[in-house]
């Protein structure tokens, strides 16, 4: 190969690949809308990796296809190829460069994870409605008789995403085949999650029967509900609206139908919702009826 054209080619390919990768990284466009403080963190991190991935894919796949065409067997040529067994410098490059990339990504993911609150499970210590009881029947009875006064043992989440300080809203989430139940300290039991916008929300997550997984794609957050282990999620919703709550862990035949909604309200709407439901469900602690009607 002639020197000059080769370097011009390399430069052109480099520029084109970089431009495509930069464009792709900013227009991945796969994600649903961002509705929590954590969502942009996840998206930006993903988009960075997507950008690197697009660049690497174009380079590697492009090289493979180029070599495959350029070095095809010509008719009648039965000779062997160039007897080249290795090149130390080249091999060192393609070991070290990916190593540096993954180390940087590793450090960056620790950083993102910290910002998301990943290092603080159990730190949030919210108000917890339930003892960490795991028996199925006791769960059920507790669901309908939550009395804020009786929450003697602390809710102890070992796993999840937490946060420092007292959350503005605490909701206990229980996954069961095939529904989510949301219990509020105000004595409300609901089949959908209602939360105020721009307030820190603490979910204490439990499972009544098998493992479920609480996922709101628009929040980019997911946490398994595990029988026998308390888990938690701390987040702040940033957009008024309603979003799907999806069960992401196989939990039986109707796993795919285990869906509900999360309603993100303005503070006033939320207060009103609280008041209405408190009144409707709780004047004399007869919440059992409401549970059945709302599933």
């Amino acid at each position: 190969m002639k020197q000059l054209p080769a370097s011009i080619w390399t430069l052109t390919v480099g520029v084109v690949v970089t431009l495509i990768a930069l464009w792709a990284g900013n227009h991945s466009g796969f994600f649903p809308e961002q509705a929590s403080l954590q969502a942009p963190l996840v998206d930006n991190f993903f988009n960075l990796m997507f950008m690197i991935a697009v660049a690497l894919f174009l380079l590697v796949a492009g090289t493979i296809i180029f070599f495959t065409i350029r070095f095809r067997q010509r008719p009648g040529d039965e000779e062997d190829g160039v007897p080249l067994e290795g090149d130390f410098a080249l091999e060192a490059y393609w070991t070290l460069i990916p190593a540096v990339i993954v180390i940087v990504l590793g450090i960056y993911s620790v950083e993102v994870f910290t910002q998301m609150g990943g290092f603080a499970p159990g730190g949030g210590g919210g108000n917890h409605l339930f003892m960490s009881h795991h028996q199925h029947h006791e769960m059920k009875t507790q669901l309908v008789s939550d009395d804020p006064a009786e929450n003697a043992p602390e809710f102890k989440a070992e796993y999840g995403l937490g946060g420092a300080g007292k959350p503005d809203v605490t909701v206990t989430v229980t996954g069961m085949q095939y529904a989510w139940i949301f219990n509020y300290p105000e004595g409300i039991t609901a089949g959908e999650l209602h939360i105020p916008v721009n307030k820190s929300v603490q979910l204490n997550i439990k499972a009544a029967d098998v493992i479920h997984s609480f996922w709101v794609p628009q929040f980019r957050l997911k946490q398994d509900a595990i029988p026998g282990h308390d888990t938690e999620l701390r987040f702040t919703a940033t957009k008024v609206g309603d979003y799907p709550v999806v069960c992401a862990e196989l939990c039986g035949g109707y796993h795919g139908a285990m869906r509900t909604r999360v309603y993100v309200h303005t503070q006033e709407e939320y207060d009103q919702w609280l008041k209405e439901n408190q009144f409707a469900q709780n004047p004399d602690l007869s919440g059992a009826v409401a549970v059945n009607s709302e599933d």
Binding site: V42, F46, F50, A53, F57, G106, S109, G118, W215, E249
Partner: peptide, 25 residues
């Protein structure tokens, strides 16, 4: 070679906990 590069790169994105919390399952 080409298919595996796609799978390997998406594997890197999945391997990081922050993205996996959204993508898992």
């Amino acid at each position: 070679l080409i298919m595996f590069v796609v799978g390997g790169l998406s594997g890197v994105t999945l391997g990081t906990a922050p993205v996996d919390i959204h993508m898992h399952d």
